[in-house]
Design a protein around this nucleic acid. Structure first.
Lengths: 124, 124
DNA sequence: TGATTATATGAACATATGATCAGATATTAC
DNA sequence: GTAATATCTGATCATATGTTCATATAATCA
């Protein structure tokens, strides 16, 4: 005995089926900006690659340089550098130069929080 | 004046450059299982698509059915159904049937926590 | 029962992504 | 200055991903 009954919207010249028009409207009102949403999506996506995730997981403990990470991951230094750039673009890691060596570390507390909550979720 | 000085490991018959052997070893000791890591990566990756992210963002407020989400996103119901399956596979959303209509909602508190922290990070 | 509604699924195709390779840049040592 | 070290970057290519389309399943209604 469902109370759901589909209505139909004319949208962009197309007939769109909707069961709860109010909920769709409410969702539309509460959306964040496209810009923020894209950046948020990119943030998760960048954490969503196993090798990049290994990098940030490793950086939870101590800062590391490209060649250490390459040795740890079993990847070329070039590949690691490419991935670090993506992580840096989204402010997931930061770098610090000491002579020839560049040390990478997590950018801020949000990153480890994301990791901790994600781990809790996966482990339950 | 850096104290960093590269050593070389013989690994799998290949010469691997390492600056901080201790850090690499420590990182190796502290790794989580491949299984957990892959699942964690998948979790972020699934949140990392703009359309799927729009879905979970919308579900923060109220549960919705496939056709509502399709209308909200401007996508086909089939496309939404495919994405909901991926979200469900990783326990990011759960579903509840009421007659013909299936309502989707966020699976647990971890999901909204991940969204909140991600948003904080993106906004700072 | 058969017809309708709501959602799910499999195959296919265009686009996006990550590793590799070659070469560029930046810092230090001589 | 040149040589060596550490990292970065652009192009390429094989693989992965998301949408579409056609079709299948599941529940309700006449």
């Amino acid at each position: 005995m469902s109370s759901a009954k589909a209505k139909f919207l004319e949208e962009d010249g197309c007939r769109v089926r909707v069961v709860h028009l109010d909920r769709v409207e409410q969702a539309r009102k509460k959306t964040i900006s496209e810009n923020e949403l894209d950046r948020l999506a990119l943030t998760y996506k960048v954490m969503g690659d196993p090798n990049r995730l290994k990098i940030v997981m490793a950086l939870r403990n101590v800062e590391m340089c490209v060649c250490d990470l390459a040795a740890f991951l079993g990847l070329s230094e070039s590949a690691v550098s490419h991935q670090l750039r993506r992580l840096k673009d989204l402010a997931l890691v930061k770098k610090r130069r000491d002579g020839q060596v560049i040390y990478y570390a997590l950018d801020d507390e949000h990153v480890s929080q994301l990791l901790n909550i994600g781990l809790e979720h996966v482990r339950e």
